[in-house]
Design a protein around this nucleic acid. Structure first.
Length: 930
RNA sequence: GCCCGGGUGGCGGAAUCGGCAGACGCGGGGGAUUCAAAAUCCCUUUCCCUUAGGGGAGUGCGGGUUCAAGUCCCGCCCCGGGCACCA
C-alpha cells in the first residue's frame, strides 16, 4: 500500500464502487424496492402506488445463452432501466421485469453442443444470467420474472393455442369467433360448404373435417421448409433468402408434409392497417408491410379447352397487351393443359428441342427443382417451355400460347400470370427469348429507351380503354370483367400462414390428441398443462433430405399414447408428437408479467386492463433489437388480435411504442490469413496494430465470440464498477444508434462519478461535506437550466445529452472554493439517480435520508430561474459573427439594433457606409447586411 | 433495381423550430503537485495562414432558396440495413 491510497481512503474507485453496489443490491432485494403493485390479487400492496399513473416498460426478453453476457447485451436493458427509474421518480407505478425465452432451437442447440439435457442447461443459464443482470443494478420486479419453460407458464401457452384451435375467422365481421358459432351457422345454412356438398348430409367425421378446415390453428399438407440437418421443419421467416436455416446455416428443402398451421393470413389486412396507430419506427413498419405484401388487382379467367385458368394481375388495365400465359412449373393444371404433340408452328425456342410437350415439361420441372433459391436469385435469365396449348383471353377473344416458367411462383396469386411484355420488364425479357408478340398498352414518353414501360400514361391499343390513365383504365376494365363474369377485383398477399410444428424436443407439447380416425381433438382445459415428458435420448437425428422428420417425442413410449375420456367414454388417443416453435412462448409473455401467479386465468381481467390501458393501449415502451421486425413482432401482434377478438384482452395491439436499440460494435483484428485474433491482446503502434509482433488489420463488427472482440461486464466491474459501466453505455451515443466500444473511454464516466463524489464527500473521512449556504445566483440558474434539460432528455430517451448536462453542472460545482451547497448537492444526486442508482443511494443516505432515492421526487426546474436577465447576443455582418454584445434580455428590437450598430467593432468594420438592411431576431441575434 | 437509415474535429458524439458549428467525453499538447511515478487538479486542443493583433476556410460532392443552411429544395457520391422474378 502506498501513501496515496491512505490519504484518500474514501476516493471513489472500483473497490469502493463494488462495495457500495453490492450493499445496495442486497438492500433492494430485501426491501422489494422494485415491486410494482397490481390492482388486485397476490401482487397488490398498500404502498398506494397503484393510484399513480401506470407505466409498463419492457425489454425483448433474452434466450438464456450459456456463453454469458458481453457488454453489448445489456445496452437496451440499461436504457429501459434508466427510463423506468426516471418514471418512478416522476410519480408513476412502473412495471419492469425480465423473463427468459428458454424453449426453442437456440437453447436446444446449445444444450446439444454441451452434451447436457436442455432443462439442466437452461436452468443453469437462467441462474447465471439473473446473477449477471442483478449485478448491473437493474430495477426489475423479480416476482414477475418468468421463463417460457416454466410449467405454470407453458400451461397458458397451450391454453392460448386451444383458443386459436377453437376459433374461426368470420370474414364478414372481420374477427375471430368461437368455433361453436361456426357449427351453428353450418347447421342453419348461413354458411355453406360448397356447391356439391350439403352439411346436413355429411357424416359426423366429414363434419369434423369441415369444421377443422376453418380453425385458426389447423392441420394442412403443405410444401414446407424441411431442414434435415436440424431434423425439423422451419417457418418461412426462419429461412434465409438463399434457402438455408437462419440457425446454423444448413440447407433447407421444400417438401410437402402434414403440419400445424396458424391462419395469420386471415389477419393480413388488420395487421397492415393497425400499423398506422403504432408509435414504431417507419423502418420496422415498412418491413412488416413488405412482409405482408398486399397488392390489389384482379383475377381474370382465361379459358382453354381443358380448363379455366385464373390469373392474378395488379395491372388488369393492360389486358389488351397480354400475348401469352405463364404458369408455375408445379401448377396443378399443367398436366391437364399439356397437349400430346406440338402444334405445327411451335419452333425450337418453344419446344426446347423435345419430341413432345410432356417430355419437355418433365425435363423442365426436373431442371428447375434442382435449382436452389440462390441460383434463381443470381441467374434471372428467362427459361420455360410451351405446353402446346392455347387459351382464349377475355375481352379480346385472342388465342394466346401457354408456357410454364420458374419466374412464376406457385405460392403467390394463382400461380399463373397473363404476360404483358409491353408493360412488364420480366415478361419483356421472356418475350424476347421466345420471340413472342409485344403490344404496348400504355403510351411511353417520347424519350423512352424502347423496353417495357411501367409508368403511367394514356392507354393505347386497348379498344374502349384508350386514352384512360392507369387508375381509370383499371376500374373500367374491372367493371367490364365483373359485368361479363370474366373476372373480379381481388387482393393478394405475400404473407403465408404460419407453420407452427417443429420436430424438436425442447418446446411446448401441443394440447392435441388424435382419435382412431386420425382427427385432432383438443385436450380439455382442466387437463392442462400437457407436460413435456422427460427424455434421455432427446436429441434430434440429422437425416438426409429424403427421409421424413422424426419427432423426438415419438420416443416417449409411455407418453405418446394416452387413455382419455373426451365425452364418449375412455378411449385410447395418440398425442401430437411435434412441439411448438420458439415464437410461441414469446408471443404473449408480456401478458403473463402482469399476473404471473394466477393459476385460474392466463391474466385476470382487471389487472390486464390496468396495465395495458392507454391512449391506444398496450405496452407503453418496448425496447429490443431490429432483428425481430417480422418474426416475433408479427406473430405476437397476430396472437394478441385473436385474444382481443375473443374478449381475453382489452386492446387491439400489444406494443404501443417500439424502440430499437443499436448494437455495440467493437474493433476486431485479423491476421494475414484472415483469422481473427484476440482483440484484447492487440496493441497499437502509431497507425498500425500488432498481435504477437505480427501486424494485423482492424475492422469493426458486432461484439461477440466469432470476432474474438468480447468485453465482459465482469471485467468492467472489476476495474470501474457497475455505475460506471451503465453511465458509459448511456453516454456513448443515442440509444438507437450502433456505436463502437472503446474500453479506454470508460474512464471518463468513472471520472464524472468520482468528481461528484468528491464534491459531496470528504475523501479522507468519508463524511458528507456540504454546506447549508445558498448557492450563488449563477450556479443556481445553471442548476435549474440543467434540471430542465435533463427532464426533457430523459423523457425522450436521450441519455447521452442528459449526462453531458449533468457533467457541465458538476464541472461548475468543482470550481467552487467552498463546500457544495446542499441545495445543489441534493438535486445533483437526484438527477444522477436513474443513471447511477448505487452511488445515488449512497449519497442520498449520506445526505441524511432514510428512504430510498428510487422513489424520491425527480427535481423540477423553477421556471423563473430559466429566464436570464442579461443575454449575450452575436452580431453578424452578412451572416458571419463579428462581435458580441451583452444586453438586457427584454431589450426591444429597435434597442438591439441601435446597440449593435453602436458597437465599436461593428462601426470600424462598416466604416462610413450605411448598412443595406438590419435583421433583428428578438433576444437572439442581429445580422447586418452590408 | 426498389424502400428505409446515415455521412459533422484524431475518435464517440452535440446543435430538439432555418439563427454563434463542434456541447460533453476520450485521445493529444502544456503546466501544477510529487524525490519520482501513478492518481488528481488547472490550461489548451476543427483546419490553414500569421511574430503578433488578426485573417481565411469548414458539417460527403455540385448547384439553388434565404439577411442567414449541418438543418430546406434539386442533382449526385459513399456507408449501413431491409426487400427483391411477388405478376
Amino acid at each position: 500500500m502506498d501513501s496515496g491510497e491512505e490519504t484518500y481512503k474514501y476516493r471513489y474507485d472500483a473497490s469502493l464502487a463494488n462495495h457500495i453496489e453490492l450493499k445496495w443490491q442486497s438492500k433492494w432485494e430485501e426491501d422489494g424496492t422494485y415491486h410494482a403493485p397490481n390492482p388486485s390479487g397476490p401482487l397488490s400492496d398498500s404502498t398506494g402506488r397503484i393510484d399513480l399513473p401506470k407505466l409498463f416498460i419492457m425489454d425483448m426478453f433474452p434466450y438464456p445463452s450459456g456463453t454469458g453476457l458481453h457488454v453489448g447485451h445489456p445496452l437496451g436493458f440499461i436504457g429501459t432501466d434508466v427510463y423506468a427509474r426516471y418514471k418512478r421518480m416522476t410519480g408513476h407505478n412502473v412495471l419492469h421485469t425480465m423473463g427468459y425465452d428458454a424453449f426453442g432451437l437456440p437453447a436446444e442447440e446449445h444444450a446439444r453442443q454441451t452434451g447436457q439435457h436442455p432443462r439442466e442447461n437452461t436452468n443453469a443459464n437462467i441462474k447465471n444470467m439473473r446473477k449477471q443482470l442483478k449485478r448491473l443494478g437493474l430495477g426489475h420486479d423479480p416476482r414477475r420474472s418468468i421463463s417460457t419453460t416454466d410449467l405454470d407458464y407453458y400451461k397458458w401457452t397451450q391454453w392460448i393455442f386451444l383458443q386459436l384451435f377453437n376459433s374461426w375467422y368470420d370474414t364478414d365481421l372481420k374477427r375471430a369467433r368461437p368455433i361453436k358459432e361456426l357449427e351453428t351457422k353450418l347447421e342453419d345454412g348461413t354458411i355453406t360448404i360448397n356447391e356439391n356438398e350439403l352439411w346436413s348430409s355429411c357424416s359426423p367425421q366429414r363434419k369434423k373435417e369441415i369444421v377443422n378446415s376453418f380453425r385458426l390453428a389447423y392441420l394442412a399438407e403443405a410444401p414446407v421448409n424441411w431442414c434435415p440437418a436440424l431434423g425439423t421443419v422451419l417457418a418461412n421467416e426462419e429461412v434465409t433468402v438463399d434457402g438455408r436455416s437462419e440457425r446454423g446455416n444448413h440447407p433447407v428443402y421444400r417438401r410437402p408434409l402434414k403440419q400445424w398451421m396458424m391462419r395469420i393470413t386471415a389477419y393480413a389486412d388488420r395487421l397492415l392497417e393497425d400499423l398506422e396507430s403504432l408509435d414504431w419506427t417507419e423502418a420496422i413498419k415498412t418491413m412488416q408491410r413488405n412482409w405482408i405484401g398486399k397488392s390489389e388487382g384482379a383475377v381474370i379467367n382465361f379459358t382453354a379447352e381443358e380448363a379455366n385458368i385464373p390469373v392474378f394481375t395488379t395491372r388488369p388495365d393492360t389486358i389488351f397487351g397480354a400475348t401469352y400465359l405463364v404458369l408455375a412449373p408445379e401448377h396443378p393444371l399443367v398436366d391437364a393443359l399439356c397437349r400430346t404433340d406440338w402444334p405445327a408452328e411451335a419452333d425450337t425456342r418453344w419446344t426446347g428441342g423435345f419430341e413432345n410437350p410432356r417430355s419437355a415439361i418433365e425435363a423442365y420441372r426436373a431442371q428447375s427443382n434442382q435449382k436452389s433459391d440462390l441460383d434463381r436469385q443470381e441467374n434471372k435469365d428467362k427459361t420455360g417451355v410451351f405446353l402446346g396449348a392455347y387459351a382464349k383471353a377475355p375481352v379480346t377473344g385472342q388465342e394466346i400460347p401457354i408456357f410454364i416458367s420458374d419466374y412464376v411462383l406457385m405460392g403467390y396469386g394463382t400461380g399463373a400470370i397473363m404476360a404483358v411484355p409491353g408493360q412488364d420488364e420480366r415478361d419483356w425479357e421472356f418475350a424476347e427469348v421466345f420471340g413472342l408478340d409485344i403490344i404496348r398498352t400504355v403510351q411511353p414518353p417520347a424519350d423512352w429507351d424502347g423496353k417495357a414501360y411501367v409508368g403511367d400514361g394514356p392507354a393505347i391499343n386497348s379498344d374502349f380503354l384508350n386514352g384512360l390513365s392507369i387508375i381509370e383504365a383499371k376500374s373500367a376494365i374491372i367493371r367490364w370483367l365483373e359485368d361479363n363474369n370474366e373476372g373480379s377485383r381481388q387482393t393478394s398477399y405475400k404473407l403465408r400462414d404460419w407453420l407452427f410444428s417443429r420436430q424438436r424436443y425442447w418446446g411446448e407439447p401441443f394440447p392435441i390428441v388424435y382419435d382412431k380416425d386420425g382427427l385432432p381433438n383438443s385436450v380439455p382445459e382442466d387437463m392442462l398443462p400437457v407436460e413435456l415428458p422427460e427424455l434421455i435420448d432427446w436429441a434430434p437425428r440429422s437425416l438426409d433430405e429424403n427421409s421424413d422428420p422424426e419427432p423426438p417425442l415419438g420416443r416417449a413410449d409411455d407418453w405418446s399414447t394416452t387413455l382419455l375420456d373426451l365425452g364418449n367414454g375412455p378411449q385410447e388417443y395418440i398425442r401430437e408428437l411435434n412441439t411448438m416453435p420458439q415464437w410461441a412462448g414469446s408471443c404473449w409473455y408480456y401478458l403473463r408479467y402482469l399476473d404471473p401467479l394466477n393459476s385460474e386465468e392466463f391474466v385476470s381481467e382487471d389487472i390486464e386492463k390496468y396495465w395495458m390501458s392507454g391512449e391506444t393501449g398496450g405496452v407503453d415502451l418496448y425496447v429490443g433489437g431490429v432483428e425481430h421486425a417480422v418474426l416475433h413482432l408479427l406473430y405476437s401482434r397476430f396472437w394478441h388480435k385473436v385474444l382481443f377478438d375473443l374478449g381475453h384482452v382489452s386492446t387491439p395491439e400489444p406494443f404501443q411504442r417500439l424502440f430499437n436499440q443499436g448494437y455495440i460494435q467493437a474493433a476486431a483484428y485479423q491476421d494475414e490469413r484472415g483469422m481473427y485474433v484476440d482483440a484484447a491482446d492487440v496493441s497499437q503502434v502509431g497507425e498500425k496494430f500488432f498481435y504477437q509482433e505480427n501486424e494485423v488489420q482492424r475492422s469493426f463488427g458486432k461484439m461477440g465470440k466469432s470476432l474474438k472482440n468480447s468485453v465482459t461486464p465482469d471485467e468492467m466491474y472489476e476495474e470501474y464498477g457497475a455505475d460506471t459501466l451503465r453511465l458509459y453505455e448511456m453516454f456513448m451515443g443515442p440509444l438507437d444508434q450502433d456505436r463502437p466500444w472503446e474500453t479506454k473511454s470508460v474512464i471518463g464516466s468513472q471520472r464524472l462519478i468520482q468528481r461528484v463524489w468528491r464534491n459531496l464527500v470528504n475523501e479522507e473521512t468519508g463524511e458528507i461535506a456540504v454546506s447549508d449556504n445558498q448557492p450563488e445566483e449563477p450556479l443556481n440558474r445553471l442548476l435549474h437550466k440543467t434540471i430542465a434539460s435533463v427532464n426533457n432528455d430523459m423523457k425522450n430517451l436521450r441519455f447521452n445529452t442528459a449526462i453531458a448536462r449533468i457533467t457541465e453542472l458538476n464541472n461548475e460545482i468543482t470550481k467552487l472554493e467552498s463546500p457544495t451547497p446542499r441545495a445543489v448537492a441534493e438535486p445533483l444526486v437526484l438527477l444522477l439517480a436513474p443513471l447511477t442508482p448505487h452511488i445515488a443511494e449512497e449519497l442520498w443516505e449520506k445526505l441524511g435520508y432514510d428512504m430510498s432515492v428510487v422513489y424520491a421526487k425527480f427535481p423540477v426546474a423553477n421556471e423563473m430561474l430559466l429566464v436570464e436577465d442579461e443575454v449575450e447576443i452575436p452580431i453578424q455582418i452578412n451572416g458571419k459573427v463579428k462581435s458580441k454584445i451583452k444586453v438586457d434580455s427584454n431589450a426591444s428590437d429597435a434597442a438591439l439594433q441601435e446597440i449593435a450598430l453602436a458597437d465599436e467593432k461593428i462601426r470600424s468594420l462598416l466604416a462610413s457606409s450605411a448598412p443595406k438592411k438590419v435583421i433583428v431576431i428578438s433576444g437572439k441575434l442581429v445580422n447586418i447586411v452590408h
